[in-house]
Amino acid sequence: MYSLNYHRASSVADAVKLAKKGDDVKYLAGGMTLIPAMKTRLSAPSDLIDLGHIGELKGIKVSGKNVTIGAGTTHAEVAANEKLKAVCPAVSDLAAHIGDPAVRHKGTIGGSIANNDPAADYPAALLALDATVVTNKREIAAAKFFTGLFETALKDGEIVTAVRFTAPAKAGYEKFRNPASRYAMTGVFVAKGKANGKDDVRVAVTGAGENGVFRSKEIEAALSKKFDAAAVEGVKVPSKNLMSDIHASADYRAALVVVMAKRATAKANS
């Protein structure tokens, strides 16, 4: 790790103020992706603003079907929250399977989405849930928030403060983990909600796309006809624009999208 200056922010406003100081400032949430990247010297911020001690970023609010998760809420907290489990168990289940227990104790939802690792789990949930990302400056629809590999709509100094969504009638997440890193090699979040009073099926795929998380029109079409695992059987997902590496070819990932979608749907219906 290169030398750096550490600053601990006491509030969101304080963090924004601190961020104006350095030349290459990064916000530090749980640090579960950032610190490993810094250790291998792939990331070299001059200054780190620690958001880990800001009370206003923590906590989960559930009101009816409306869910708000503070950006500083850890994966373990999301996984364990009973109110959330009652309205949207798919998100609890997703959080319970991010990384390992020690990672879940530190990693946060805000950090995960702000980093937008193409193999992270939360982006699939947010996109499929048509969630809103709340920042200190504005509200951004998930579809507009994730803009590419490790790229988001966040501007310099902007901080994610919360994630908001309406719990759908049904949702499920299933991922195929990279055998080595255990990150999602292909993860699919299916959700059956309502839009403009009509059924609205959304299927988002993480870990597979060359440009990060994306919606699978093919599977959405199949599930819109019938929200059932069997409906996904035989659907062809194009391998174009899917990643290819030593662990998975694009063709394999395309096949996994279908298999994971099937299993996620089965979970959503269970």
Binding site: T40, P179, A180, S181, R182, I246, H247
Partner: peptide, 21 residues
Amino acid sequence: RYDPASGQLVTASYMDYTMPR
């Protein structure tokens, strides 16, 4: 795994080399 052209070690950490867990 090494890259056949460049000779770079592709599996140089636990991110890419699968250790039995």
